[in-house]
Design a protein around this nucleic acid. Structure first.
Lengths: 134, 134
DNA sequence: AAACATATGTAAGATAATCTGACATGAAAA
DNA sequence: TTTTCATGTCAGATTATCTTACATATGTTT
């Protein structure tokens, strides 16, 4: 179940398409990027390229703005969601680990873990792009 | 199960992205369009916009060309596939009809059918874009 | 072999789509 | 009322794509 992560993060859509899909103006989309609510990829020539996850986020942003939340609020909400997702992933991973690793593996892992702490990753709580893809 | 049809036919992708996704050159893609193997939509400004189905087809075309099939051959293959799909759909539809319509409905339908014959529609035998979306 | 057809490469000139940066503005907050 | 926020709008620059035309390698027909 890790492949769909990649797919949902694949930069595929031009800003024009994203405008249609989200019903936001280019100005709005760029403004949200400026406030780091999204971070679309770029082409070699500096054109923005959005992923499905970006579009999900934009739809969420739109909802939240309709409900009167400002940039700062949305940023916090995203942080919380991300943290929640990370926790959930860690929990799942811990559970998986408990079941899958032998004691020997565990010792090896522990050693590694003690040395280099703190790597990171994206998470992914999907919105409702299910309207567009299945 | 009709919504995903729409989604797969939604024009979303610029030619640049399709080039990356299919590993075809712009020249090749335009050539295949010229030979009516695909019919991408256009923006107001005449830029091509490809759907998931278009991309499926391009991947199929690529395979067939690798296997030495020429434009004419591919066109025939697509025709056959489409016909097959239509037949399948008709069969399914007939079955559905048999189960779902009352005799009254059937009489009404029959009348209509006798008047205006011959409307049409797309079909859809999907390729393997499952690599990119789920 | 010569001539032709097919599929693709490549280049030129035109136009569309997008970019950044700046200034304008209405509504809400201070 | 003055600021701040979210968005609109315009200008000038750059990228991406378009069509058309010619070039070319490989395969086919005469």
């Amino acid at each position: 179940m890790g492949g769909s992560e990649i797919r949902r993060n694949m930069p595929l859509f031009s800003i024009g398409i994203v405008m249609q899909l989200t019903d936001l103006t280019a100005r709005q989309i760029r403004y949200y990027e400026e406030h780091e609510l999204i971070s679309p990829a770029r082409t070699e020539g500096n054109k923005r390229l959005f992923s499905l996850n970006d579009i999900d986020k934009l739809l969420e942003i739109k909802d939240l703005i309709d409900q009167g939340v400002n940039m700062a609020g949305i940023k916090q909400i995203f942080n919380v969601k991300q943290q929640t997702a990370i926790s959930a992933a860690e929990k799942k991973q811990a559970e998986k680990t408990r079941r899958e690793l032998s004691d020997a593996d565990l010792r090896k892992l522990l050693r590694k873990e003690l040395q280099q702490a703190g790597r990171f990753n994206r998470s992914g709580n999907h919105g409702d792009m299910s309207k567009f893809f299945h």
